[in-house]
Amino acid sequence: MKTVFLFLMLLLTFSSCKKSESAAEENISAMKLPPKEDMAASVAYEVVNKNAPQKSEDKTIEQKIIKTGNLRFETRDLETTYNQIQTAVKNYNGTIQNDTEGKDYQSIFKNITVRIPSKNFDLFVKEISKGVAYFDNKEISSQDVTEEYIDIDARLKAKKILEARYLELLKKANKVSEMLEIETQLSAIREEIEAKEGQLRYMQNRVSMSTVTIEFYKNVAEESGVTVSYGAKIWNAIKSGFFGISSFLLGLLEIWPFIIILSFIIYFIRKRFKKKTT
């Protein structure tokens, strides 16, 4: 009896060892290729943990401020004011991005868009404001995008870590189906990385270079004095009427084929109508 009992005990111990070994093998095989969601979660957790000790250093992070200006004012001499702005642009290492001019019923105007280094923004605005009695419009705005910049930068770092993980899996992959799946994931991750890098470059450009829009004008009435005589008004009205007639005649010349066709149609209609009445 003792021999049989010992034999049964050995058999049960051996079977339990086999079960534990097979369970361990299943767990190891399951850990080789983690799902994409689990991998992304682990990467995000790692990035958060890496950034956590640096929270005390966030106070020293350089602020990202986007500065913009919009100025509109009247001037007595358009050319002098324009030269003054050009000189200020050169002195403060800026560039003229857009330069337009025009004339309406009451004034002649110029509109200039300037990109200026943000460190020189205040000095530039002060320089071009010299000699201006008052502004019709003066808007200076500063937008703090530090938090948004840090957020995009953190997301970019997480995507790069995720890309490195998938590259490691690609080296270990043996099946073609696994390789294709990993390549698909890598392609999507790389597109997201490029998009985040583009956002950061655009934001950094707007932070480093401020935009100032300047519109200045001169009233046309000042050329002939404070008031305009009644005779000058009559002469201007006659000229306007002459130009109106000229424009009307030019318009008729542009549509002369349609006028001829319409004349023929009216002629035949009237001729038919006369035949019916007779």
Rank of each mutant, 00 (worst) to 15 (best):
F5C: 09
E21C: 08
E26T: 12
E26W: 06
E26S: 15
A30V: 05
K32F: 11
A40I: 09
A44Y: 04
E46M: 08
E46I: 04
V48A: 12
A52N: 11
K55Y: 12
Q63S: 12
R72N: 09
T75W: 02
L78E: 03
E79Y: 05
N83M: 12
Q84T: 13
Q84E: 13
N91Q: 15
T95Y: 05
I96H: 03
I96A: 03
Y105V: 08
I108L: 08
P117I: 02
S118K: 03
E127A: 09
S129T: 01
S142D: 13
S142Y: 09
Q143W: 07
V145M: 12
I150A: 10
D153S: 13
L156K: 09
L156P: 05
A158S: 06
I161E: 05
L162E: 04
L162N: 01
L162H: 01
A164F: 05
Y166L: 11
E168A: 12
E168R: 07
E168P: 00
E168Q: 14
L169A: 05
A173N: 01
E183K: 06
E191G: 15
E197R: 05
G198V: 05
Q199W: 03
L200K: 01
V207G: 03
S210R: 00
V212G: 00
Y217I: 02
K218S: 08
N219W: 14
A221C: 07
G225H: 01
V228C: 06
G231C: 06
A237C: 06
F248W: 13
F248G: 04
W256L: 13
F258C: 08
I260W: 11
F264H: 12
I266Q: 11
I266M: 10
F273N: 13
K276I: 11
T278L: 13
